[in-house]
Design a protein around this nucleic acid. Structure first.
Lengths: 355, 355
DNA sequence: CCCAAATGTGGTAACGTTGCCACAAATGGA
DNA sequence: TCCATTTGTGGCAACGTTACCACATTTGGG
């Protein structure tokens, strides 16, 4: 078991003191000749600074902890990828933790960040941020990535307060849909509730009836969507459109309809949120609302670096990422059978506000 | 700026020495009464051990570094998710790094692992492992996840040496295909070369001609597949089937064909490798060969933990994960036009070895 | 009753690094 | 020529933890 190469070995090799080597490494003033000898000594010894020693001494590590609900979700993995890549170029290390949509694991992850003397934390909490603040001792700067909040305690990147689902609903209404279901999400999850609320609000604004039997908070995955789709296909008065909490759920819904012989969008329209890469691969290609993971990551990091560098030290800031509706193949006007039943309503909606 | 709570504060609060608190924390022998007072003191002070101090002292951290080519690839993200989840339960922290299929970033990641005194490394290198060994000083145990190798220097989890693509090719041949293209991969990448070699070997075994114009090493992503698909659709003597290096490429190929009015599998068959979740969402659902990320992760971790715990200290071990062909909708017998042109050859193959 | 062993605890040095202070040498103005 | 300033370097303590040793106390056998 070989001994580690330390700064002392380098100092000895270069014939200087450890202080001087340290100063050299941290870009202090060192004589050019000395500097050269140290450079040579580092090469010769293969010296590599110890993160642990540095972190202990400085009470600060070059680690940024990123906490997401699920790395398997392409939205989060693209966000993580962007953040990690940018941080790497800035000389930081990203520790990526998955909370599995579990509050206790989220808290454990936050504790871990403090144990590591993390420089910063980016957390995509599915919940409200109350439990985040309860930290004794000093806490690294935190940036939140979440659904809309009035006045968060931390810097926050969030989707535009009008939300993603209103865009979906208005698009569907404009196409002539009146009986619209909502699928996905979990009660208590901030993101899901925001999207559900946007759905409900817009439905009311458009004077459309809200049938509680069409609100399915089944979860966030493709499997959850599949279950919701099976259910919706089977009920008596089937909706003509389904507004889903995200693309994964929408893909599951489409898949279920497909298995049951329902054609999308001829028989039923489906919308998603996130614009994951696979939304363009599915058949039909998914109409969706962008919620760009890369953009989220970039903005979150920008705010975090502001805190870390001390460039900004004021009140928590909010950045709202706009949503954009991308109309593709999974939405179309409702089947004639339906419009014929209530032609008046259909015509009225035809003349409604344009997108 | 509040001072951190250290082991000394706890000791003071409990009226014992730091040694005793340390012994309590590391499950040494402590009197029950003392033990109780320490427990109480920890609760009162909100003490949290410092990872940095621990790591420095022990010359060993509870960090496991995982290096993958691309977190955005579902195969790697599912592998990472599994590993990370299991490690978390064992009390380890996973640092997930993306090498971006770049050797220099891979080396940087390995250096980083040593700087962090990592307990272990799991690396999915797309290249051979020569550059991994060149570490001065002591190196943590390493487990490789890669394509087939004869006698690797490290514990390795790899796909079965018969490879994934032979299964695809034999399946296609059995369906009656003779003119088969290969799409995806990068020259110099171990995984891609293994799959390409498997393709070439099996084609030869089946006595099928290999047309260099049908070997397209375009890359690993969906976009790369799309490009390959566009090309293949346009050439004079179009292949009747495309064997892709992975599902992402296959989805891109299908997408390109779709855009050009070619129907899969009626006009052309396509196979992938990996069985990513979206393979079942695509239309048509993708015929693929499994290369289960979770299984890979689990096996890699099992070997790594053996090294870390010292349970196993012998020669590097190999674990081969079997490939399984999953026949779905994207493959079918070639279009009659083709079989009519060479009926004899077709019939000969009909009687070939079954899958 | 005495000594040996077992049990529980405290002191201390070290892990590798950096920041502060002190000091020597070089420089420059009067 | 002398003192003040600048420039470059080394010594030392500390970050929070643990491993080792030493020591005090208790236990038990002879």
């Amino acid at each position: 078991m070989k001994q580690n190469v330390t700064i002392r070995n380098v100092a000895q090799h270069a014939g200087v003191s450890t202080s001087t080597v340290s100063r050299y490494l941290n870009s202090g003033y060192v004589d050019v000749r000395t500097s050269e000898r140290i450079r040579e000594a580092i090469g010769a010894t293969g010296y590599m600074p110890s993160m642990m020693a540095r972190g202990l001494k400085a009470q600060q590590s070059n680690i940024v902890v990123m906490i997401v609900p699920d790395i398997g979700n392409p939205f989060y993995s693209s966000m993580a990828k962007t953040v990690q890549h940018q941080l790497e170029m800035l000389g930081y290390v990203t520790v990526l933790l998955s909370s599995g949509e579990d509050v206790s694991r989220e808290i454990a992850a936050l504790d871990l960040a403090r144990q590591m003397y993390a420089s910063g934390i980016i957390i995509s909490s599915i919940n409200t941020c109350e439990h985040i603040a309860r930290a004794p001792g000093k806490t690294p700067p935190i940036v939140l990535t979440s659904a809309y909040q009035e006045s968060p305690a931390f810097d926050t990147v969030m989707v535009h307060h009008l939300g993603a689902t209103p865009l979906s609903v208005r698009h569907l209404v404009e196409l002539g849909h009146r009986r619209i279901a909502f699928a996905g999400g979990t009660p208590g999850s901030g993101i899901a509730e925001g999207r559900l609320n946007g759905f409900l609000r817009t439905m009311r604004e458009e004077n459309l009836p809200i049938d509680p039997a069409l609100i399915l908070q089944e979860g966030f995955t493709q499997e959850d969507g599949y279950r919701a789709g099976k259910y919706l296909a089977g009920i008596a008065e089937r909706p003509t459109a389904v507004c889903c909490v995200n693309d994964l759920v929408a893909l599951g819904v489409v898949h279920a309809f497909d298995d049951l012989g329902l054609r999308v969008p001829r028989d039923i329209s489906v919308t998603g949120v996130d614009n994951i890469p696979y939304a363009t691969i599915a058949a039909p290609e998914l109409t969706t609302v962008t919620n760009d993971g890369e953009l989220f990551g970039t903005e979150a990091l920008r705010m975090l670096m502001g805190r870390i560098n001390g460039t900004y030290a004021g009140e928590p800031r909010l950045v709202e990422i706009p949503n954009v509706l991308i109309v593709r193949e999974s939405t179309a006007p409702p089947h004639p059978n339906y419009t014929l039943r209530e032609p008046l309503a259909y015509n009225i909606k035809e003349g409604g506000t344009p997108l």
